[in-house]
Design a protein around this nucleic acid. Structure first.
Lengths: 209, 209
DNA sequence: GACGCCATACCAACCAGTTGGTATGGTGCT
DNA sequence: AGCACCATACCAACTGGTTGGTATGGCGTC
């Protein structure tokens, strides 16, 4: 715990989040991350035994940051589970601001690049994405029980669908080089969730994003 | 036109499709592509002036292959535009078989990796994705005119949403290392399109995928 | 004075791209 | 027809710079 300056391992991890989300995993060099962290290679390989281990740690770090961000978001306090489901979508849309690397998903990005070449990274991304989907699933399941108990679809499948839309929206945003199209995609997702969770009258609540 | 053997430029492009979809753009080396094509580096740089130019040509090649595949698909012949819209989704689900690199999208993969680092590639992917969305949009617009003229959403936005779902489904499939979850996502997309394009009774046609 | 932390200097492997050359076949002239 | 000429297509070997990773040593703290 010497050298006082706030944990340099965390500096590496924060740097990794920024740089990898901008350039992708393969294109980011260890030197890039060292420079972004303001440290040197010697320090890097003191904390991580390889670039791949950094990727695994960065995935954990990203998932932990995300988890606490969602746990602290205001929509979490809604009593009605449907409000939490729609609040989640609105919240995700609301954070789509500023530069793309600041709000896109490290996990989706890395798994795309590494699913065939780095099985460990693939597994880490998979489990973090699945864990996040599970938290969405529980609200969806509760809302379904209350508002659409006879609907044909499975809450787990619906939760994964929300993640597909979000990751796909990020890809379109990157192609377009701006977040607007992603926000639009989420408004379609919101409409789908509304119609599926209020069986007969899809007018029940406000529709803005 | 010497050396008879069927166009080696095409061999390079076909090899690029396979290899890049498996390993990603940055992780694939020029040597990888040469080996997959059964040719040498000298030949490679005779046909392409750089790795980036190959990426641009590969994007064109991929888009051209896709365009002809969709143009020849049976659903294209349906008279009812809604049948063409749902047929498109079903067709996309039906080709999600075999190895992931064989049916996932080169454009979505490359744009994710290169959107910040290679603007030319980003633009190429963007325009090809947008072109494909346009073809979907025209069927959606026609179906909307016929079945849901008063719906609030815009056909262009809906078409982009279909692409977001598809690209997002590919990411989940890569994370899970299997296409099943992607097929499930498309069944949600199908349901959404059905409900949005048959305003009052969403029972009108069969729902299987 | 030992240990955690970090920097400098370094290396072998690998990468995109180059070089200098050979094989092939078409074209135009005689 | 035969031949000189030349563009296209291809190849094996090489190059200069970069990459992930290492070796070593200094500095501060207990």
């Amino acid at each position: 715990m010497a050298r006082a300056h706030g944990d340099s391992k965390t500096k590496f991890l924060d740097a990794a989040l920024r740089v990898i989300r901008a350039k992708g995993y393969e294109a980011t060099t260890v030197d890039d991350i060292c420079e972004a962290a303001g440290l040197t290679k010697g320090s890097f390989f003191h904390h991580f035994e390889s670039k791949e281990e950094l990727a695994l740690s960065a995935a954990d770090h990203f998932a932990a940051m995300a988890e606490s961000a969602f746990a602290a978001a205001p929509y979490r306090e809604a009593a009605d589970p449907l409000d939490r489901v729609l609040g989640y979508v609105d919240f995700r849309a609301s954070i789509m601001r500023g530069e793309l690397p600041d709000f896109t998903c490290l996990l989706g990005m890395m798994v795309q690049e590494t699913y065939e070449t780095h099985p460990e990274i693939r597994k880490a991304c998979d489990s973090h994405i699945s864990d996040h989907a599970k938290t969405v699933e529980s609200d969806i399941a509760e809302a379904k029980r209350r508002y659409a108990p006879r609907a044909q679809w499975d809450p787990g499948s619906m939760a994964l669908f929300t993640q597909a839309v979000i990751h796909g929206a990020f890809i379109l945003a990157k192609a377009r080089n701006g977040p607007e199209v992603a926000v639009e995609c989420l408004s379609h997702l919101r409409r789908y969730l509304e119609t599926q969770l209020t069986p007969t009258q899809p007018k029940r609540r406000d529709t803005h994003v």
